[in-house]
Design a protein around this nucleic acid. Structure first.
Lengths: 211, 211
DNA sequence: GGCCTTCTCCACCTTTCGATGGATGCGGCG
DNA sequence: CGCCGCATCCATCGAAAGGTGGAGAAGGCC
């Protein structure tokens, strides 16, 4: 169908992973890797400057902007490329944040090369490409909306789990402490607990947050 | 010096990472990648069958044997290859387990290709190759000989991690709240934190308590 | 247009937690 | 024996967290 190759941008902070993606994807005749970005910020710039069809985006970057933020910025622009998230983690926070941000697909890094190539073609065609594990998680989530925390609530809870105080969380998320407390009150109600440590314990047990 | 190339075995469950390592390392004229292993078990087999100088070993495998176990098995044999651990994570448990198991070096996956190549040569020569971050961690660890919490302190911290309040902990352990607080103060001092959630976060990260 | 949810923010008040600065008894070690 | 670390206990005070009861803006849905 398409005689012109699919133009790709690789965004990952690990040089080894970028080289691996390039090696795997350039083996396909209908792909062309036009650039690599070692940071999320650089990915945003390159996606704007270059004519790119699909961005392969990692979620974890060492510092600075995160992958889902970058995804949101990139997909906001009209005529934006598709963003295919490719990461190691598969927690609810990551998945929901990425999809919310406008990702076309979500793959795990242990995906075999041929499936990866298929997913890129699927994404280039504008269809969503989800790894089976991810699809399963979303199904579970829909089937049992028992612990339905909003995205923002999970975000707050994740920071609580990392040991931050309400003050620190408010600074990190550019909120007031009052708002953080509000979110926490809602979280406690939904989880049926009455303290931050208990919330972290139950949320960890149900796989809502990482670590 | 060495006219024969360094013979490498790549052990990682991510095809993309294996491809990346192969791409990066085969660019060096003095390296030869002789095999790839997608599981730790396969890495052990291949290390025994083939004549290998250095094994590049991931720590996280999806299922089955872990990377540090495989490292222990491989290095136990006389005339064994050097094992260079290459992983994303840098928690104390991982690092210590790998070094304990006989790893010659420990690198993080965001290492630049040239440093990676240097580290492989260093490992091939039998010298230890540690990423600066890792070296720093080990120094910290030596400087402050293990974060040794007393049994009682770990007991208290474990209950904190399960979400119990000081009151509940005191009842569970037949203590007064004052005593629980005392233990917590000591725990905070040893861990270098100043709140219960932060204590749980760091203790979990260093494997002091189970989750 | 209403209705609902989410996210944001505010004020007031109570409880819990953490910080400080003690004290006692016990057991190991030089 | 004295010293030290551990575990236990205590009181007090300020700071942080939690409880209650709001409110307004944005977006999806009927």
């Amino acid at each position: 169908m398409t005689s012109v190759p699919v133009r790709l941008l690789l965004a990952d902070d690990h040089p080894v992973v970028r080289a691996g993606l390039r090696a795997v994807l350039e083996g396909e005749p209908d792909f062309e890797v036009v650039a690599e970005a070692p940071t999320a910020e650089r990915a945003v710039e390159l996606a704007a400057e270059l004519d790119v069809d699909v961005v392969l985006m990692d979620l974890q970057f060492g510092s600075g902007m995160g992958g889902s933020q970058a995804t949101a910025v990139i997909t906001a622009r009209p005529g934006a490329p598709r963003v295919l998230v490719l990461t190691t983690y598969d927690t609810d926070v990551d998945i929901l944040a990425a999809i919310e941000a406008g990702a076309t697909g979500y793959l795990l890094k242990d995906t075999p090369p041929d499936e990866l190539a298929d997913a890129v073609r699927t994404a280039a065609a504008g269809k969503s490409a989800l790894a089976p594990e991810i699809a399963q998680r979303l199904m579970d989530r829909v089937r049992r909306p028992a612990v339905m925390l909003s995205l923002r609530e999970i975000e707050v809870l994740q920071l609580v789990a990392e040991g931050l105080s309400n003050q620190q969380i408010s600074e990190r998320l550019f909120l007031s402490q009052a708002t953080v407390k509000s979110h926490l009150v809602h979280i406690y109600a939904k989880l049926g607990v009455d303290s931050r440590t208990a919330a972290v314990a139950t949320a960890t047990a149900s796989g809502l947050i990482r670590r």
